[in-house]
Write a protein that binds this DNA or RNA. Structure first.
Lengths: 136, 136
DNA sequence: TAAGTATTTCAAATATTTTTGAAATAATGA
DNA sequence: TCATTATTTCAAAAATATTTGAAATACTTA
């Protein structure tokens, strides 16, 4: 083992051979300036186990220009689909697809009013939009 | 025109014909309970013109489980690629792809240390991660 | 300089998301 | 009931994003 590097044991097995590149069986040498304590490894492992799927669904719902525009419009006022079609200059079926994603993410809801569907932001939707605007 | 509905003029032209469904040439009737003032239309139009592309790039960068995990790991400590490979159990080239996206979004940066690349969160990266965690 | 290692890049294969247009559904009013 | 209209659904097409593995690059050290 060289003086200015050190092997770290993150995974299970360590071989003595030096032939292979950094891998599960042969963890790489890391520069001595970046010693990683077992404690750090434990912390990271704990975080890696956290479930991020809800977060991802929400962020994905937000990360589209059409969907952001829908949310921004609905913050100004509730609108039925046919008005959103005009305001966003977007075909019905396309808009419908994006409305569905936003609804599934819990960012918007709708209620029937005659033969119209009026969409509005949920509380989550308002919160998310607000913090998105704050950040960017 | 029927009593309990009203035509709105969002786009340019309005025909008198009633034959077509709601479209640019023939805006739909909206329920009378949802009158839309010209003022509201103006507000929405102004918002529709806002550029959301930077926001979208950032949100897209964040909306992936691998990338969120990379950020979460880097919040605990800076790491070189070979260690991230272990911690995230992710192939080099795959990881490299995601690191590139995060770098392009301005969420992480790296510095050379010997033949190692040590990645770390940028200030933006820390902020974003923090607010993502606050929200979800 | 040569050999070894860490990381990226590239192109092809896959997977996922979005768009499109037609058809289905559901509510309304005549 | 029938015709109309608002909206969704569906499947195919198109566009994007991700994964994969091999090769290239670049740094280090012997």
């Amino acid at each position: 083992m060289k003086e200015n590097s050190e092997r770290i044991m993150i995974s299970v097995k360590v071989k003595n051979s030096r032939s292979a590149a950094c891998s599960k069986e042969m963890p790489c040498k890391i520069p001595s300036s970046y010693k990683i304590s077992p404690d750090t490894v434990e912390k990271v492992k704990a975080v890696m186990n956290e479930d991020v799927s809800d977060t991802v669904v929400l962020l994905k719902a937000l990360s589209d220009p059409i969907r952001l525009r829908i949310l921004k419009a609905l913050r100004i006022s509730d609108f039925c689909v046919c008005v959103l079609v005009e305001l966003l200059d977007c075909e019905y079926s396309k808009l419908s697809y994006h409305l569905k994603l936003l609804k599934e993410a819990g960012l918007i809801e709708c209620k029937k009013e005659g033969c119209f569907l009026i969409y509005h932001l949920t509380e989550l939707g308002e919160e998310m939009l607000e913090s998105v605007e704050k950040l960017f």
